[in-house]
Write a protein that binds this DNA or RNA. Structure first.
Lengths: 126, 126
DNA sequence: TTACCACCTAGAGTGTACTCCAAGTCAATA
DNA sequence: TATTGACTTGGAGTACACTCTAGGTGGTAA
């Protein structure tokens, strides 16, 4: 797969794909004889994984660390698992915090509903 | 309340508090005779509200808009409610997306658990 | 009355995460 | 064989959200 195809498929700009590879957020992609990136299925998986994790708010730093552990081989499995558990914990607490904010927002909206209803009752024609 | 107290109370730097006021993310705070900010209870509420909403990922742009509608008075209630509902929707879908990523992460962690268990069984001493 | 400290403002600087650019390569087409 | 277009690289530029700085004011304590 070319970079153009991957870019379209995952809606990530070519520049960002190259940038992610440059900083190690995804492993280095194989080039063909003329130096052009040829994304394998696994490369695509990495692109997708990084996209998900990044948009969920995982730090670039942690993801780079994870990629490099994977590349070091099976000896790092324990460490990788630990890293993922740590990130999972962070993500979970972010979600909980956001859920609490959502609830506040719901409360606020409900209060607007009430107040607007009152205004309506006072001026039934307006 | 002085800016130092508010800064401590909500764990937001004084610079950021001044910045938020400057860009209209919170309404202008009253100054005393010598020009020093004196945060009222309501100001503190705004600081807290902005902090919550910002850390949940609401855009600065939307929050500035909300603040300015509140300052325009009761005539904007309908519009404010609409804005909050819109932001609520965005927040909800972000939470759902993050929840999906959390689930993926759980699956990944579970697979590491399995693989590590297998390795252990193969080398029960190691 | 001078030293100090917390505060003020406007504007410049910074870090992160991209995003763009210049100069060049390669394969395919006119 | 000349042009086109998608790609390459390294490095420069940008946007956002702060964060810091310089120069100044006002109130308090030695």
């Amino acid at each position: 797969m070319t970079i153009a195809e991957v870019s379209r498929k995952y809606d990530i700009s070519q520049d960002t794909l190259r940038y992610y590879e440059r900083i190690g957020l995804i492993p280095r992609v194989r080039r063909n004889k003329s130096g052009i990136r040829d994304y394998s299925e696994e490369d695509c998986y990495w692109v997708y994984f990084s996209k998900c994790m990044r948009s969920a708010g995982l730090s670039i730093e942690a993801l780079i660390e994870y990629v490099s552990l994977v590349q070091e081989g099976d000896g790092t499995m324990q460490e990788r698992k630990k890293l993922l558990i740590e990130q999972r914990k962070l993500l979970k607490s972010r979600i909980e915090e956001m859920q609490a904010t959502l609830d506040r927002l719901d409360g606020k909206i409900a209060r607007y509903e009430e107040r607007l209803l009152k205004v309506e009752q006072q001026c039934p024609v307006g």
